[in-house]
């Protein structure tokens, strides 16, 4: 189990990381970046998978199953949409 303060440190460092890495994003990438970070929180799928694996009662299994479906949808949809948007960002040098 992660100790409370250790978790707090992780949380603090990750929060600064999140702000720093996108610190200088140009406006043209706001929408794709939002979509990309939307994809990244699709990692919730992993949590839902583990929850479903540990579920025993019918209710818990149902909830876990819904969680897995929604998490997988977040990850898959988020990826496709972001990839499609970014695929279009080519400079004039890349072409022909």
């Amino acid at each position: 189990m992660i100790d409370g303060f250790l978790a707090l440190y992780i949380f603090m460092l990750a929060a600064f990381t999140g702000k720093e890495i996108i610190g200088r994003v140009p406006v043209i990438l706001h929408t794709p970046l939002m979509s990309g970070s939307n994809f990244v929180h699709g990692i919730v799928l992993v949590g839902a998978m583990i929850a479903l694996a540990h579920a025993e009662s019918t209710l818990a299994i149902t909830i876990g199953f819904i969680g897995v479906i929604l998490g997988a949808g977040n990850a898959a949809g988020g990826y496709v949409v972001t990839e499609r948007m970014l695929e279009m960002f080519k400079s004039s040098k890349d072409k022909k």
């Binding site: 929060a15 600064f16 999140g18 996108i22 970070s37």
Partner: peptide, 15 residues
């Protein structure tokens, strides 16, 4: 989950 979620939370808030 903690790291990915927090990074998105912070980046998203900033965005």
């Amino acid at each position: 989950l903690i790291i990915a979620g927090t990074v998105v939370g912070a980046a998203g808030t900033f965005l």
